[in-house]
Simulated assay, not measured.
Amino acid sequence: MIIEWRKRHSSVLLAVSVFFAPGPSGASVPLRGTLHAERDCEAFVSKKKKSNPDKARLEPGDAYVILEVNRPQQPDWVRVRVEDANPPERWVEASCGRQELSETPAEEEQAETERPIEPDDPSLCGTAGLQDSFKLALSWQPAFCESHRGKKECAANFPAAYQSAGNFTLHGLWPNREACGINYGNCEHRRPQREFCDYPSPGVNAEVTRQLSQVMPGTASCLERHEWFKHGTCQVDWDPSQYFEVAIDLVRQFNDSGLNKFMAANMGKQVLVEDFLAQVDSALGEGARQRLQLTCAGGKLTDVYISLPAHIQPGSSLSELIRTAPQDFRSKCSARFLVDPVGFSR
C-alpha cells in the first residue's frame, strides 16, 4: 500500500529496528518514517523482478520517506519515495541505510492507511505500472501513406518489401488504464516534441533496431522515440530494447498467423469486414475478433488495434494473450473496405 504524506508530523522518532507492530505473516506493513541512506543502492519498482526502468539509486547521505516494509519483523526490504524516480515509490534493501519511524496518533494513522486510491484519479494517468490492459497498434502502411505522403517512410524509393508481402506494420504497444481513456501516457513527464526526432534516443540495441526498421517503417521518422516516451515509459517490466523486442514478436505473430497471406491475396480488392474478422478467428482462435478494433479512412483499412492483457510474458503466444484479454470490439469501417496496394493512388 502506498501512503502519501499530507503534512509533517512533529512526533518523536523511534529506531525501526527496535520493534514492529505485528502483522500478517509475509504481508507488507505500512509505516511512517525516514530512511537515511548510508550506501549507494539500486531502487526497484518491483523487488521480486528487480525492475528499475530508469536506473534509480539512493544517494548516500540523503533522507527518504518510508512507505512500508516487506514484513513486520526484521524486514529486509523497505519501500521509500525517491522523488526523482518514475514511479517514485521504490523498494530498497533494508541494509541500504538507517531507518527511523515516526510515532503518529492511532486514529490519524488509521485514517491515512484506510484512505482508498481512487481508480479514476487523473493524477494516476502519468504513473507507470498501473495499466489494466495493453493495445497492440498495427497499421496498414499503404493506406497510412496515402494521407502522409511527406513522411520519409512513405517516399517512393522507401523499401516496401515487408508491406508488399501483406504484412501489417507496427505502430506501437500501448499500456492502457481504462479510467484514463487515451490519456494514460508520458510517464516520465517529458515535454512533448513536435518532431519525433527531437526526442532523445531511447537506447535500443543494434539488433532490435535492425529488426524494428523492418516491422516499423516509421523508424525513418523516429516513431520509436515517440512511442517509447509516450507509451513505453508507462510499463515497468522492460527496458527499451526489451519493450520493442516484445512488440516485434507480437506483430510478426499476427502477420505469420496467415493474415499476411489473406491481405496479400486481396491487395487492391474490396473485402467484407465479416470475411476479415472470420480470418482473424481462424488464425488466432475463436472469438479473437472480439478483441479487435478496426479503423478505416476513405473506405480503406488503416489500423487494427488488438486488446491484450495487462501483463505480457515475453515469448507468449499471441493467440493465448488474445484469449485472456478483455473484449473490446469496435469498428469504424463500413460493411467492406479496400485493401490499399503499395504505392500512391491517383
Rank of each mutant, 00 (worst) to 15 (best):
K55S: 14
E68D: 07
A128S: 12
G166T: 01
P88E: 13
E207P: 00
R81I: 14
S334E: 15
P105G: 11
P87D: 03
R8K: 11
L14E: 15
I66W: 01
A128M: 02
R39I: 02
L35M: 12
E188K: 13
I3E: 04
R190W: 04
Y162A: 12
S147C: 02
T295K: 13
N205F: 08
E207A: 15
D281L: 05
H171I: 06
Y305M: 13
K50I: 10
L301Y: 04
P116A: 15
G268Y: 04
G126N: 12
I312G: 06
K50H: 09
R225V: 03
V204T: 04
L292F: 15
I248K: 05
W140A: 01
P60C: 02
S307N: 05
L58D: 03
A94G: 05
G258C: 05
E286L: 06
E178W: 06
Q235H: 05
N167F: 06
G166K: 06
L321Y: 03
S46P: 12
T169C: 01
H231V: 01
I312D: 06
R39H: 03
L101D: 14
L223P: 00
D62P: 01
G298Q: 05
I3H: 05
K47M: 07
D54Q: 11
Q73N: 10
H189Y: 02
E89W: 13
H311G: 00
L338D: 10
V236P: 01
L58W: 02
S11L: 03
G172C: 09
S95F: 04
R79H: 09
P72T: 04
R98E: 12
E83Y: 08
H311F: 05
